[in-house]
Design a binder for these strands. Structure first.
Lengths: 125, 125
DNA sequence: CCGATAATTAACTAATTGGTTAATTAACCA
DNA sequence: TGGTTAATTAACCAATTAGTTAATTATCGG
């Protein structure tokens, strides 16, 4: 399976059911059956248990024990890692395309000055 | 497979090889073999082609055509959607836990006033 | 045209994912 | 004790993923 935490987190988020469960948990604690309720027309309870397990393994949800219930709560910590990863790419959608072009020109210039010349960007047209 | 764009994006990001390819592309355009180079000890070129296809389908990479080369460039647009999704959860890692506790108390209060009482948070101990 | 380079496609495989139904565990309550 | 509720586990299945090797396509350059 995934070996790094970030991959596990992204994978956990790559499912609309799981994201909806997180959305529900962002409103406060909920039991497994509470989390399942909106989906029981589309899928079974064990399916929800499995989704929940994915979220738990990614560290996004913490499940505790109260009698026969399992109150779940959202843990945002792994999302901090995602956010930090995203920060490196923010310039690729936030900045104006002009400034992005400038930025790219400077880094590719550095690249060339390090002597790397494969890829052969000659643009002979 | 995935039906929504956000899931496809998260899934594309849930692999360290693909994230490394994006990191490389954040430095500027690169051909397929440029992107492959760091990984050719661990995997074959067709494997890279496949990873690239996942990134393309998620809209994160745009591949063009220049002679026998395929210059690829990073497209950050889908990451904007990820960032917007993340914004709803920022409070769960950014704020102090005290204020998070406050926030949670208010939303669960709203929840209760809407008459929802399943989950039975009685805390009889 | 030929040979080399760049990349993709085809065909196959093993492991993982996302779901199912049926059975099981565990706690409460009357 | 027995019934009910909450949730998990087991066993299974189909589809997807992530990789492989071998063959193919396409373009350049002499």
């Amino acid at each position: 399976m995934h070996h790094d935490h970030l991959s596990a987190t992204f994978a956990a988020l790559a499912d609309p059911t799981r994201r909806a469960m997180l959305a529900r948990l962002s409103q406060g604690e909920a039991n497994v059956s509470d989390l399942a309720k909106p989906f029981l027309k589309e899928m079974s309870l064990p399916a929800i248990t499995k989704h929940l397990k994915v979220l738990e393994k990614a560290g996004l949800v913490t499940k505790t024990k109260e009698a026969q219930w399992r109150p779940c709560k959202l843990n945002g910590a792994p999302l901090k890692d995602v956010s930090d990863w995203m920060d490196h790419y923010r310039i690729f959608w936030e900045e104006s395309f002009d400034r992005l072009g400038e930025y790219l020109k400077t880094v590719t210039a550095q690249e060339k000055s390090k002597g790397k010349n494969h890829g052969r960007k000659k643009k002979n047209k």
